[in-house]
Computed example of a mutant assay.
Amino acid sequence: MNRITKIMVMVVTTMTLGYISGQVTQTSVDTWYPTLNKPSFTPPNEAFPIAWGALYIMMGIAAGLVWSCIEMQREEARKGLTFFAIQLALNMLWSYLFFGLKNPMLALIEIVLLWLMIYETWFLFRKVNKIAGWLFIPYILWVTYALALNASIWYLNR
Rank of each mutant, 00 (worst) to 15 (best):
I4S: 05
K6I: 07
I7P: 10
V9G: 00
V11E: 05
V12A: 15
T13M: 14
T14I: 03
L17A: 09
G18E: 01
Y19R: 00
I20T: 04
I20D: 04
I20F: 10
G22E: 05
G22T: 03
G22N: 09
V24F: 12
Q26D: 15
Q26K: 15
Q26L: 13
T27M: 10
S28Y: 07
S28T: 08
S28M: 11
V29M: 09
T31R: 10
T31D: 13
W32G: 08
W32T: 12
Y33M: 01
P34R: 14
K38V: 03
K38E: 03
P39A: 05
S40G: 11
S40A: 10
P44Q: 07
N45Y: 12
F48M: 01
P49D: 11
I50Q: 09
W52F: 15
W52P: 04
W52C: 07
G53D: 03
G53K: 03
G53M: 04
A54C: 14
L55I: 11
Y56I: 11
M58T: 12
M58R: 06
M58Q: 08
G60K: 06
G60Y: 08
I61C: 04
A62H: 09
A63I: 02
L65S: 13
V66F: 07
V66R: 07
S68R: 06
S68C: 06
E71T: 14
M72V: 07
M72G: 11
E75A: 14
E76K: 15
E76Y: 12
A77W: 05
R78K: 15
R78N: 15
R78I: 13
K79Y: 13
L81F: 13
F84I: 06
A85C: 11
A85F: 10
I86N: 03
Q87E: 12
L88A: 15
A89K: 03
L90I: 00
L90C: 02
L90P: 00
L90S: 01
N91G: 02
N91V: 01
N91T: 03
N91A: 05
L93R: 04
L93I: 11
W94A: 05
S95R: 06
L97W: 01
F98D: 08
F99R: 02
F99D: 04
G100Y: 03
K102G: 05
N103A: 13
P104V: 08
M105Y: 14
M105C: 07
L108N: 12
L108I: 01
I109V: 10
V112E: 08
V112S: 04
L114P: 00
W115V: 02
L116F: 02
L116R: 02
I118C: 11
I118F: 08
Y119M: 12
W122V: 00
F123H: 12
F123Q: 12
F123L: 11
L124D: 07
L124N: 04
F125L: 06
K127E: 12
V128R: 08
K130Q: 13
K130L: 13
K130H: 11
K130D: 13
I131C: 08
I131E: 14
W134Q: 06
L135N: 05
L135Y: 05
F136Y: 14
F136R: 00
F136I: 08
I137Q: 10
I137K: 09
P138R: 13
Y139G: 03
L141N: 07
W142D: 06
W142F: 05
W142K: 05
A148D: 00
A151V: 05
S152G: 15
W154Q: 09
W154C: 00
W154H: 14
Y155L: 13
N157Q: 06
N157K: 07
R158S: 09
